[in-house]
Computed example of a mutant assay.
Amino acid sequence: MTRTDRVDELEAQRDELVEMVEDLKSTVETDEDDKEFLVAQKQVTQLELKRDRLARKSDALVENIENLESQLDEQGKLEARREEINADLEELRTCIERIEREAIEAFNMHMETVVDLLDYGNLARIWLEYRNPDGRRDATFELHVTHQTGDGTTYEDSVTHLSESEREVTGLVLALAGYLVHDVHEEIPFILLDSLGAIDSERIAQLVEYLEEYATYIVVALLPEDADALNEEYQRITAI
């Protein structure tokens, strides 16, 4: 039996009790000298008490039903909101995966060009691999390095075996990939290069020339001997 049915039942009992009380009152009023008056009066009092108890119980059940209905309504709203949030999360995860893949593609493309441009001898290739075996939340990135021997044989090597110059160039290319993929260049067309001491002058000049294509303004902090390798057309600040 539902709470609503129970309320209806209690209200029916209350109506019956009210009717019985009225009948008894009528009996008492028409024959107050009857010897059963006291008994009837007692029954009236008991029935009135029972009626009041049933009324309170009925009111409590009605209030309980209203509370439950309110909770069900709130639950429905929360479930709908949860569905919206889950949809938003899925959209964000998809967006993150897309950006991650685009960043890796950009890094690999620029890294291949820069490795060829700077010619680090037996360094054949540096590239990132996107690994996502268990879903987007567990995505990882693995950096690979390939060297080539004099006879043309290639082998994969450890990142720790890269020279300091090669590591700095790799970091610069990674920063460039993020700079472009996240469209930072559209809001801030500015690149600042500093602490390039591990890279030789000729390669610094090649890097600056390469970066010109991707930023309107480039500022490079260099030692005088490194600055001499750059094209004389670049503006120079020698003192502040």
Rank of each mutant, 00 (worst) to 15 (best):
R125G: 07
L68K: 12
E202V: 14
D151S: 13
M109T: 15
I240S: 15
Q43Y: 05
Q75K: 14
E233N: 09
D226E: 10
E202Q: 09
I188R: 02
D183E: 09
H185L: 00
H182K: 13
H185P: 00
Q235H: 08
V173E: 02
Q206S: 08
E102I: 07
E142G: 03
E202C: 07
K50Y: 06
I85D: 03
N108Q: 14
L72G: 04
R14S: 14
E32A: 09
L193A: 06
E84D: 10
E63M: 11
L117I: 02
L128A: 15
A229I: 02
G150M: 05
T153D: 05
P189S: 03
A221Q: 05
Y120Q: 05
F37C: 10
E63G: 05
Y155V: 02
P133F: 00
V62Y: 03
D52E: 08
I199A: 04
E225R: 08
R53I: 06
Y217Q: 07
L123V: 05
Y130G: 04
I99C: 00
E11D: 15
A221E: 07
L193T: 01
L172A: 10
T146H: 01
E91A: 12
R167A: 02
A106G: 01
R3H: 09
E16K: 13
Y179P: 02
R137K: 12
L118S: 15
E97L: 05
L174D: 00
K50P: 00
E69A: 01
D5G: 11
R203T: 03
V219D: 06
D228H: 10
D157G: 08
R6Q: 15
T216L: 09
Y120G: 01
A239W: 13
R14K: 09
Q235C: 12
L10W: 06
G76L: 00
L68A: 12
L61P: 14
R131F: 09
R81P: 12
E22R: 13
L17Q: 06
V18P: 02
T154K: 13
L193E: 07
I126R: 01
V62F: 01
V39K: 11
Y179L: 04
T216H: 07
E29H: 02
I240W: 15
E105H: 07
V44C: 06
E22Q: 15
E69P: 01
R136D: 14
I65S: 08
